[in-house]
């Protein structure tokens, strides 16, 4: 692929992302807003004498998963299904660039925006509440990458199995909001009843929250091998089934 061409495509896909209020606000602004609101209520003093972690130290990785959820389950799949339904990809296919380079640019832009959203969250957390990352950079990066891969593949799968953009939107919205409240991303899972906790075990975002909270807290990745395994298997499964479904679709 010609790198200069790809850079221009990424530039315009980035512009399109920032011009969409939903993606811009919920990826780059809303998580930090949550941090400020809940930080001003709970502060970041150690939760118990046994730990040096405060409420915001635990909440920041959970909010980071919320950012991944916005891009992976809303912004990216909704763009994908809209471009396919409106035949925008078909127009790109009628150029030397083709739809693949556009889709690749859309994935990259959403990934970069996810990282920027998380970075803003971390900087604000550090500046306002002294949020600490006790884990190694490598463990945090790996956990982030696997969580991104799993949730982006899930969004991709929804657009692949849905017959049209409307159904894809419904699937994305329903799963995003259910997972947002039942995975521990916004409401701490220690507050869940037994039944809700059982439901949350079936949601991929729960594993991403547990993994990132562990990585931020400096717990070894081996302690979280279940989460790593579940997210990796789901990534392969979602992406594989999605790709097979897309092969059968009519793009023209």
């Amino acid at each position: 692929m010609k790198m200069k061409r790809f850079a221009v495509i990424c530039k315009y896909e980035g512009l399109l992302f920032l011009r969409d209020f939903f993606g811009f606000f919920f990826t780059l602004v809303f998580p930090t807003l949550m941090l400020v609101i809940f930080g001003s209520i709970y502060g970041n003093a150690p939760i118990s004498p046994e730990t040096e972690l405060g409420a915001m130290d635990v909440s920041v990785p959970a909010y980071a998963v919320m950012v991944i959820g916005v891009t992976g389950l809303m912004a990216f799949p909704l763009t994908l299904s809209e471009c396919k339904e409106k035949k925008i990809y078909k127009r790109y296919d009628a150029t030397p660039a083709g739809k693949r380079s556009i889709i690749l640019a859309q994935i990259l832009v959403n990934f970069v925006m996810t990282l920027i959203g998380i970075l803003i969250l971390l900087i604000a957390g550090r500046a306002l509440y002294g949020v600490k990352i006790l884990g190694s950079a490598g463990a945090v990066a790996l956990s982030l990458f696997i969580s991104v891969a799993a949730l982006f593949s899930m969004g991709f799968l929804f657009t692949a199995v849905a017959p049209d953009a409307k159904i894809a939107n419904v699937l994305c919205y329903v799963f995003y909001f259910v997972m947002l409240f039942l995975s521990g991303a916004t409401i701490p899972d220690m507050l869940f009843s037994g039944a809700v906790r059982t439901v949350s075990k079936f949601l991929p975002m729960t594993y991403a929250v547990d993994l990132l909270q562990g990585a931020f807290a400096g717990e070894g990745l081996l302690t979280h091998r279940t989460e790593l395994l579940v997210l990796s298997v789901l990534t392969v499964l979602f992406a594989g089934v999605g790709a097979v479904c897309y092969k059968k679709k009519d793009w023209a």
């Binding site: 127009r91 030397p96 660039a97």
Partner: peptide
Amino acid sequence: LQETAYPSKIRVEELCRLFAAFY
């Protein structure tokens, strides 16, 4: 194409620059 669409939040000159980059 008989039936086509472009991204809704893109300006005419931006679309031209984007398509120019394809060739």
